[in-house]
Structures are given as structure tokens and as C-alpha cells.
Simulated scan of single mutants.
Amino acid sequence: MSDRQPAGALLAAAVTVLFWSSAFVSIRSAGAAYSPGALALGRLAVAALLLGGFALVRRVGWPDRRAWPGILTSGLLWFGGYMVFLNWGERLVDAGTAALVVNVGPILIALLSTWLLREAAPRSLWVGIAVSFAGTVVVGLSMSGGGSSSLLGVLLCVLAAITYAIGVVAQKPALRHGSALQITTYSALVAAIALLPFAGVLAREAADAPLSATLNVIYLGVGPTAIAFTTWAYALARTSASKLGATTYVVPALVVVMSWLFLGEVPGWLTLAGGALCLAGVAVSRRRVAAPVAVVSPRG
């Protein structure tokens, strides 16, 4: 695959990163009224209904059988498991610790995609990931003051990072046998079905939840799930999993800005410095690798 990504893939990745960054604010609001499993089911149910309706209008057919291993793996582990683990983990650890642990995900994606997908991993990618992860560490430390961390909470965040990484790597081959809309729609349906045991809890909590929390659940289903996961799949089909995974290190920097704007949480200089490191690392990871120049020996 060429190291040059189409403009459409870059735009799609930008849309994904923006929506996933905004999800941080919405999860904090909705999580006060909805438990981890119910929140994940509500979010995925909204996404599955929206994507399913759109797929019917577009007459998207049944996926090719070769796409189903990736759909089932990403649907169960990433769309479903990741959301439950992350929602639960963030209740037991402070935001800084959660950010530190979950952002191991792009590193795992790079390792797995190099091993399983045989993707090239240039030095600039690893340098960029290292710089961005250092920025995540700085942001995490600056957000961890006075917070609490439990062993279970850290373990849940580790599971979130692992399921995220496996889901992304599993989705990549599936996109060779289906469109971004098709793969995302059926992955969301698989996850929603898997989380149906939480339906009773969701119904009870929705009856007591304030309107603002429910609206945030709906927003999470529409923006950060239905739209963002589709644009992610579109970008993933057109670039390497490791390089796309590294772009998610923009999220901590954007979360800092959005928390400042919408929650009134004024970041300290250490947090800003960490956010700048995250952005710098993403820029380095996306540097193009110069093609080797062929040396032609003169003929005598």
C-alpha cells in the first residue's frame, strides 16, 4: 500500500477523531444516570437503528461470508466489549489513569497489524507513537491529582485497550469484502444483540434518568458511534491500521480543549504541554517515508 493517503481518508479520520473526542464529555454526563452495560446498549441500539435504516434506504445487502469473521470479532470485542469495559473502568479509576491505560491501544494496533496484517511499520511511525504516548502520560498525570485508582479499574481499562486493538485489526481484512457502511452496520447490530441482557437495566434507568443524560446517550449513538465508526471504517479501508490508530492520539489533546470549552475545566500548563506532545507525535507518525532511490550503475 502506498504511504500516501487519499484526502477523503484524512477527512474521514478527522471526523472520527472529533466525534470520539466529544464522546468524553457526553459519557461523563450520561454515566451519572446510566450504568456501564446499559449505557453501552443504549448507545449501540441508537447506532444500530440509525445505520440499519440508512442501510435499508441504500439497499445494502448481506455481507460476504468472508467479511463475517471480522464483523463478529470487531462487533463483539470493539463495539460491545470495549464500550462496557471503558464505561465500567472509568467509574473505578480517575480520568488520568484511564487515559494512560486505554491509550496503549494504538501501540497494540501497531504491533498486531505488523504481525498479523504484515503492514510496514516505518521508524517515523514508532517515533510518533512514542512521542504521542509520552504526551498521554503527561496529560494523564496532570489529570490524576487526588483521583483514585483500583486494580479492577485498571484491569478493565487494559481490557478496553486490548479489545479495541483486536477489533480494529480484525476489521481491516473485512473491509476488503464489504463497504464501510456495511461492515459498521452489521458490527453494531452484532454488538447490540450481544448486549441485550442489559435491556432490562436500560429500561429501568431510562425511566429515572434526567432528559439531559438520555439525550447524551442518543448523541453517543448518532455521532461518536454511527457516524464516527463509519468514517473510521472508510479511512481504515484506505490506509494502514497502525498509522490510522496513531491518529487517535489527537483525542487527548481535543478532550482537553473540549473540557475547557464545555465543562469549564481550565487546563494547567502541564496538561497543555501533554496535549501538544500528542499532536506532535501524530504529525511525526504520519510523515511520508521517502521512496528508495534506485542507483543505476553505468555500463562500460
Rank of each mutant, 00 (worst) to 15 (best):
R4S: 15
A7C: 01
A7G: 08
G8W: 02
A12N: 00
A13I: 10
V15P: 06
V17G: 00
L18S: 13
L18T: 08
W20D: 01
S22T: 03
S22K: 00
A23V: 04
F24T: 11
S29N: 09
G31S: 05
G37K: 02
L39A: 12
L39P: 06
V46G: 07
G53V: 12
F54M: 13
G61I: 13
G61F: 06
R65K: 11
A67Y: 00
G70D: 11
T73L: 15
T73S: 14
M83W: 06
F85H: 03
N87M: 06
W88R: 05
G89A: 04
L92Q: 15
G96F: 05
A99W: 03
N103Q: 13
V104D: 04
I109T: 08
L111R: 12
L112K: 09
S113Y: 12
T114D: 09
R118N: 14
E119M: 14
A121M: 13
W126L: 15
G128R: 09
G128F: 03
I129Q: 14
I129D: 11
V131C: 05
S132H: 07
G135C: 04
T136F: 02
S142R: 12
S142F: 00
S144P: 14
G147A: 06
S150N: 12
L151P: 00
G153L: 07
V154N: 08
L156C: 03
L156M: 11
C157M: 15
A161P: 15
T163D: 06
V169A: 00
A170G: 00
P173I: 01
A174N: 01
L175A: 04
H177P: 09
H177E: 13
S179D: 14
S179P: 12
A180G: 13
T184L: 10
T185A: 12
Y186N: 01
A191M: 04
A192D: 02
A194W: 00
L196H: 06
P197T: 04
A203E: 12
A203N: 05
R204Q: 15
A207S: 11
L211I: 12
L215M: 13
V217L: 10
L220F: 02
G221C: 08
V222K: 10
V222L: 15
I227Q: 09
A228N: 04
A228H: 03
T231Y: 00
W232H: 15
A233E: 06
A241I: 06
S242I: 07
A246G: 03
V251A: 08
V256F: 08
M258T: 04
S259F: 08
L261A: 10
L263T: 11
E265Y: 03
W269T: 14
L277R: 13
L279N: 08
V282E: 04
V284E: 07
S285P: 01
S285T: 09
R286M: 15
R286D: 11
V293W: 02
V295W: 05
V296A: 10
V296G: 00
V296F: 10
G300L: 14
G300A: 08
